[in-house]
Design a protein around this nucleic acid. Structure first.
Length: 155
DNA sequence: GCCAACGTTGGC
DNA sequence: GCCAACGTTGGC
């Protein structure tokens, strides 16, 4: 099993929104970055655990856990000329962008904030914390995943 | 709202 | 293939 971190702006799609989806599952559309796409396309496996991260908000941080719930498949928002994710170079015959389904697993009792994570010596290697990182999907180490989960249980 | 950092685009 | 211009991300 692999571990991931996926960012979402809570004003557009929060962990509560995910929980409230049908079957607490939603497709993760709109990824238009090749590195992030490649992670979904090449490395994600059903059942992989995902740290759900809220970005662009008052208190950025990890708010809970989700899991990968499908194989990768074509991101159909790229075919829709009315969508803000439309990409005329992505065709049904040869889709450029993919997505996976994500299922809610649990919401933390509290947010593990970016600030806290920065202060943890054993999280210093996290991609999330590297200078200038803007990836919205990134791999996370098992130890890092478990450290963050245990931080969520401490007050 | 600002701005640093980064990815993408396109002219050459 | 270089690189300037531009757009986006996301913390602050």
């Amino acid at each position: 099993m692999r571990y991931w971190l996926m960012k979402s702006e809570p004003e557009s799609f929060s962990i509560d929104d995910l929980k409230n989806c049908k079957n607490s599952t939603e497709h993760w559309d709109g990824i238009r970055n090749y590195q992030a796409r490649n992670f979904m396309r090449d490395d994600m496996v059903i059942g992989d655990r995902v740290l759900f991260y809220h970005s662009n908000t008052d208190e950025p941080g990890v708010v809970g856990i989700a899991e990968v719930a499908s194989e990768p498949y074509a991101d159909y928002t790229a075919f829709d000329s009315g969508s803000k994710y439309y990409d005329r170079q992505s065709t049904k015959e040869n889709p450029r962008w993919v997505m996976v389904d994500i299922r809610f697993v649990e919401k933390f009792d509290r947010t593990v904030t970016l600030k806290e994570m920065k202060s943890m010596y054993n999280l210093a290697g996290m991609k999330l914390l590297q200078r200038g990182n803007r990836l919205s999907i990134m791999p996370v180490g098992k130890n890092e995943f478990e450290t963050i989960v245990s931080m969520s249980k401490e007050f």
